[in-house]
Design a protein around this nucleic acid. Sequence first.
DNA 1: CCGGGTTTTTGATCTGAATCAACCATTCCG
DNA 2: CGGAATGGTTGATTCAGATCAAAAACCCGG
Lengths: 232, 232
Amino acid sequence: MPDSEYRDIRKLDLFAQMADDNFTSLMRGAYVQNFPAQIELITEGEPSDFLHIVISGSVDLFSAWNGRDTSMATVRPISTFILAATIKDAPYLMSARTLEKSRIALIPSQDVRAIFDADNNFARAIVTELAQCYRSVIKAQKDLKLRTSLERLANYLLRQQRHAGGRAAFELNFEKRRLASVLGMTPENLSRAFKGLQPYGVVVTGTHITIENQADLERFAKPNPLIDDFSA
Amino acid sequence: MPDSEYRDIRKLDLFAQMADDNFTSLMRGAYVQNFPAQIELITEGEPSDFLHIVISGSVDLFSAWNGRDTSMATVRPISTFILAATIKDAPYLMSARTLEKSRIALIPSQDVRAIFDADNNFARAIVTELAQCYRSVIKAQKDLKLRTSLERLANYLLRQQRHAGGRAAFELNFEKRRLASVLGMTPENLSRAFKGLQPYGVVVTGTHITIENQADLERFAKPNPLIDDFSA
DNA sequence: CCGGGTTTTTGATCTGAATCAACCATTCCG
DNA sequence: CGGAATGGTTGATTCAGATCAAAAACCCGG
């Protein structure tokens, strides 16, 4: 692993406060690999052998049942995924696949659990991380149960806009069909939903979005920090 | 607080392994109160002043937005709720109200955070608890995104049956209209959904359910441990 | 620049579920 | 005992969103 990556991982909240030699020993057992796009990294139901860290690229967490499937979340650099399964030594609840060419670090779960037992700062960091993850899912759940698909899209655009710097024009960083799955709708419906937001000043050109009337869109979307603020 | 309650709380996974004097000091700052039914204990958006423990009765966690509201979960004795908000010192994401006359212990959040910093066993227990909570919400999310309302009801009945001992006949422990909200549908629809399960041998009389053809219902419901197994 | 493959859009139709409205059952209380 | 709440069911209608089918736009590799 290049030194710069090593340092980037070290800087993650999860690892920042832990003892040097514990971090080193975690990393010693880690694999780093490049994967092409569309590779299934893990499959739901399997034992959680590795904690994964996305170093570059992006990863889709999804789940399937009875012939249907749905996108649960997208992981972007630099962050970890399936921490809860690793800690509980329980089967994965979601599958993961690369969306694009991605570089992934794999840390054996048993190493994570061992260091978790030994390093109190690491254990504390895990608490914070899990609390964060938990709250994010609750927000997603609220988004899903309390809003229509049009409202979900409107709020998604506002979030993405903020994330991209807050200017009126910005890029979607998803393929539309995956965005549809994330938002819990079909691609056809997403296409129509974009149309449905035109009256509120949303202009779509490919992956390029322009919000021509911020106030109008916000009046419709009614964004709420208890649902949309990912940091809090 | 009566001694028996004190010992019951102590036995919770969350507190079982922590040092005696830390537990004692947590409990010293705690209030225990009896609440009537339908009292709003906490309101989403407010700062998380207390970690709550349901000693008896039951509590509904729900959330509202733009005039709609939805039931997120039900907490039954003996367990805690809003641990994540307490730990992160962040606002509640959900409101809570008693469903029936309930006895609730309130532990000041700052005490919890202080002991969390001081007691490593407690910190570890919190990790396990949060990982469990996280996985539960992910399962709920999958249930919601991957299943129709009829399928959700069928699987709910199977879970409840198992929970009640596995016999063909058992009681719903919810009011139907709240069950509807939990399952993400309207009361009218729930009523019709029960009808819709008749062909699979489900007989409903008030809150009394009989599953006359277990195999048929399971064939339809396709229960899956990665969604329905609450313990794993 | 062409051709074959995606992804996206559009249109038509169908369906699950919400809504609206009325009705029934029960409980609870003066 | 009557009658007002409350919770539950039923029926009719509406609506959001899924599905099916096909056209259009896009993206590359050759």
